[in-house]
């Protein structure tokens, strides 16, 4: 499958309909998931209405990790099979992952504010997400700093894989650090303890985020391919 997609022309043909399709699906899922979560799902015994923030916070947390894993896969393909398209895919995904991580951080602090009494609490999960956010910034900054695009892709791939290897270590040390300094945070943000009635809107919103990522990443890739084509033709004095 990888080599099938590797040829930019075929990718452009395929993504021409795939990107808008993902956008439509994402819109539908958002239109279904958000009201479902806001009005047609139960409040929570202790948190009250604020539990509804889970439907925008948890999918963002899941996918900011998922997107980084996707970038890791693309980086591996880029370094091992040397597909230029893999670099473009990883670069297209990074800013979206950063936005998702940012959404996760902001909604997490809003969610925690009533119980913590402050707008930012150095809770273990949010701190790990903040580190992931900085990793995204580092990756994007590296791309921006290197002129030679082909080399930038491969160097960013190495950085991405180094980050991927480090993520579990960072997660472990931040969790150990957060239990060392304060008792486990009071609210249960995710995991198995979600009431069944809440799973519906949560999974719908998770799907919405996923297809939104698909649409944005594919259009980012299309733009990058066209940009490279235009710049290359300018370089040869064509346009």
């Amino acid at each position: 499958m990888i080599s099938y997609l590797a040829n930019p022309a075929r990718f452009m043909a395929l993504s021409a309909w795939a990107a808008p399709l993902c956008a439509v699906i994402a819109a539908i899922l958002f239109a279904a998931g958000a009201p479902w979560g806001l009005f047609y799902s139960p409040a929570e015994q202790f948190q009250g209405e604020t539990v509804r923030i889970m439907y925008v916070h948890v999918p963002a947390a899941w996918w900011s990790l998922g997107i980084y894993a996707f970038m890791g896969g693309a980086s591996l393909v880029s370094l091992v099979w040397r597909h230029a398209l893999a670099d473009i895919a990883a670069r297209a995904a990074a800013p979206i992952g950063a936005v998702f991580a940012g959404v996760c951080l902001v909604t997490g602090s809003i969610w925690g504010a009533p119980t913590w009494g402050t707008w930012w609490e150095w809770d273990g999960r949010l701190t790990s997400m903040l580190v992931l956010f900085v990793i995204y910034l580092g990756y994007i900054a590296l791309w921006a700093a290197i002129e030679d695009e082909e080399r930038a892709g491969k160097l960013a791939a190495i950085l991405c894989l180094a980050g991927l290897i480090n993520l579990p270590i960072i997660k472990f040390s931040v969790d150990w650090w957060s239990t060392l300094h304060q008792p486990a945070s009071v609210f249960r943000a995710g995991g198995s303890s979600i009431a069944p009635a809440m799973m519906g809107p949560l999974l719908t919103m998770a799907g919405a985020y996923l297809f939104l990522f698909g649409a944005l990443a594919l259009s980012n890739m299309r733009a990058s391919i066209q940009r490279r084509r235009v710049e290359r033709s300018r370089m040869e004095g064509g346009a």
């Binding site: 209405e49 604020t50 509804r52 923030i53 925008v56 979206i96 009533p114 939104l212 944005l216």
Partner: peptide
């Protein structure tokens, strides 16, 4: 927790702005 709705709407608004903004830029 009382007055949860204010926080909920704030969170959804921020998420909507961020995601729509990203989509617009892309």
């Amino acid at each position: 927790i009382e007055g949860g709705w204010a926080y909920v709407y704030a969170a959804y608004a921020v998420t909507g702005l961020a995601l729509a903004g990203a989509a617009l830029v892309v």
